[in-house]
Amino acid sequence: MAGVMDSVNQRTQLVGQNRLELLLFRLGGQQLYGINVFKVKEVLQCPQLNAIPGRSSVVRGVAHIRGGTLPIMDMNLAIGKRALPDIESCFVIITEYNRTAQGFLVRSVERIVNMNWGDIHPPPKGAGKEHYLTAVTQVDGQLVEIIDVEKILAEVSPIREEVSAGVIQDGIAERAVQRHVLIVDDSTIARKQIQRVVEGMGIRTTLKKDGAEALAYLKSLLKEGKDPYGELIMIICDIEMPEMDGYTFTAEVRNNPELKNLHIILHTSLSGVFNEAMVRKVGADDFLAKFHPDELARRVNDRVLAMTGESLLPAVQPGA
């Protein structure tokens, strides 16, 4: 299994090509599931787990790995199914999301496949609102379900979503009254988290679920004779998305003379193995790792104040 992961950190050549690699695994049955290799730090046979008091039922225990202690979550339980039996024969996928590491217990790990984001599609509309899918695809004629890990983590270990007192600049909503923020993310949970922060500042939002949908929206503004720069404060965009990823979306915006000046923040849970140089390569204005409401609010503050010619810092007095 170590050989499968040997080159995880050498796969950045996929970035900017609207491609990704999926690590395929199985849970309780024959259904194939996938996770982006960029999120994966290691795959190993399930180590000895130690119980901890008061833990979520989804957390089967904690493991001591590489000098650290990590929670190990049963992914089958997390998506509403039965607990995986015989965990000694199972595998653990160590991942990094939102600046934290955690392990997911799975029955077996298959292989890594190279995919185009254009072949990754949103879940079927008939899947309902309570599913745990962020996307689906096919590999060798078999359906692969890509799980919304951010939804799992939000349920198992909810994070603070409120902005701290004093972070939001007084009068920021009045300065932004004619503009709104475009939020682009395939995770329903992530979209809502960002939306709550921005709308909590008194600023309107528009939500899109992937880069292709967001690009079509921007082009529709142009078709209607509207100036996207006059409409939008900024775009807050995820990187991993079906149809069109955040890198490709950013590159498409920068290559369009009528859109190229839009302010784009790439907002992603790809924090540990993510190469920030790629953000500069595709021309994004900023990068922000998910999800810290204060940092996000500050970015919105800064952008609004920059657009209105204001400064966050008090003026320096003569002789100071």
Rank of each mutant, 00 (worst) to 15 (best):
N301H: 11
I72M: 10
P53S: 09
N50P: 02
I264Q: 11
K151C: 04
E276S: 15
P293A: 14
S271A: 15
I112L: 13
P124I: 09
G80I: 07
V156Y: 08
V92W: 01
S7V: 04
N256T: 07
D238T: 05
L288G: 09
I159E: 14
L27R: 01
I264W: 07
T268W: 06
L77P: 07
A306L: 14
G200N: 07
E224T: 14
I159Q: 09
L77G: 04
L218R: 03
Q102W: 06
M244W: 04
V43P: 01
G283Q: 03
F104D: 04
K209A: 07
N255K: 15
Y247D: 03
P257L: 06
G29A: 07
V198E: 08
I146T: 01
D285M: 12
E21Y: 05
V149S: 07
Y247H: 06
I65T: 08
P257V: 04
P228G: 09
G166Y: 09
G29V: 02
I172E: 01
K290F: 11
N255E: 12
N114C: 14
A83R: 09
S108E: 10
Q17V: 08
V316E: 15
E88L: 06
R303H: 06
A320K: 10
A2H: 10
R99H: 09
Q142N: 13
G200S: 02
G230M: 10
L313P: 05
L22N: 11
I239V: 13
F291R: 14
E276T: 15
R19H: 09
K281D: 08
V279W: 04
G272M: 15
I72T: 04
I35R: 00
I159H: 10
K125T: 14
V40C: 08
T188H: 10
I203W: 03
E213H: 08
A127K: 07
A51M: 10
V163L: 11
